[in-house]
């Protein structure tokens, strides 16, 4: 009997040791991504901060690494983002409202749902091939800003729909029913109650999707963005380049001076992303407080 108790105790103490070891392993697993993120930032900053100055932001790309800048890629990315938002946001919100408020549990609506979930997982480069085949060739838009923005907006669409649906779903049903009880019809309820209430979530989703879209390189390269643009676009039909494409171009050159430019470009890109993410957080916080 005594012997038995001892066995149980050793058993428990071994279990405890295993659990402690497991917690240590988990702590390491959680730390690794954080360490890597810090290393990535420090590494890029050390490489690129020397090149980062006003001239870098206001000069065109050049054959000479020291005098090359990111003016045209930066402007290209800015216009791309505005156009992408213009195309993708209304359609995305519309689709989300339809799926949450109008679509019943029909076969069609569940098909649309599977379809959107699949589209969100389609590799971005496939959207590039779609843009190349559909916009650049078939619709004859050429390698223009418009073709690029349309391609990016198709890519951003599923993300915007998914985020907007979640925001709309979080509006309590009682509020809708209260509006109906007061005699509002469906659209008025959506316009006056559902959309304003879900606005913080929708806006956050939109900003994050747009940040993702302008960070994309592969689809823009596939539709044929130029890698050397020494002019500013004068219309939406103008050829263009974008910041990530310029960074990729500099990385793929053998000379290390261009790698330094790439690092400086990355810092700018990351700062833009950081600003957009902060904006999303601030907007969400402000708007949520106003509603409450």
């Amino acid at each position: 009997m005594k012997q038995h108790d001892n066995d149980d105790l050793t058993f428990i103490s071994i279990d405890r040791k295993i659990e402690k070891a497991f917690i240590a392993i988990m702590a390491i697993a959680v730390t690794i991504p954080l360490v890597i993120m810090v290393m990535l930032l420090i590494d890029t900053f050390i490489d690129g901060s020397g090149r980062l100055n006003v001239d870098f932001l206001t000069s065109f790309p050049s054959r000479f690494a020291e005098s090359a800048g990111i003016l045209s890629p930066l402007v290209g990315s800015g216009i791309l983002m505005v156009l992408t938002a213009l195309f993708a946001v209304p359609v995305g919100i519309g689709a989300a409202v339809y799926l949450e408020e109008y679509a019943g549990k029909t076969r069609l609506s569940s098909f649309i749902e599977i379809n959107i979930s699949n589209l969100a997982g389609v590799p971005s480069i496939i959207y590039g091939l779609l843009g190349l085949g559909l916009f650049v060739r078939y619709m004859q838009l050429g390698r223009s800003l418009l073709a690029g923005a349309l391609t990016l907006s198709l890519m951003a669409l599923p993300m915007i729909i998914i985020a907007s649906r979640e925001a709309i779903r979080s509006v309590p049903r009682e509020l809708r029913e209260a509006a109906y009880a007061l005699g509002a019809d469906k659209w008025m309820t959506i316009k006056k109650i559902v959309l304003p209430m879900s606005l913080p979530g929708i806006l956050t989703g939109i900003i994050l999707s747009l940040a993702r879209a302008i960070g994309e390189t592969a689809p823009i390269i596939t539709i044929g963005a130029l890698t050397y643009v020494a002019f500013l676009p004068d219309s939406v039909m103008s050829p263009f380049t974008a910041l990530p494409v310029q960074i990729f171009n500099w990385i793929s050159r053998p000379q290390t001076e261009f790698h330094i430019n790439a690092a400086a470009g990355i810092i700018v890109l990351l700062v833009v992303m950081l600003l957009m993410n902060s904006l999303a957080i601030i907007l969400r916080y402000r708007l949520q407080r106003r509603i409450q």
């Binding site: 890029t44 390189t217 592969a218 990530p244 960074i247 790698h259 690092a263 992303m273």
Partner: peptide, 14 residues
Amino acid sequence: GIPTVVYGYFALTF
């Protein structure tokens, strides 16, 4: 959320 071109740079140079 970090752009993949940044990871590419990190993989190649670090």
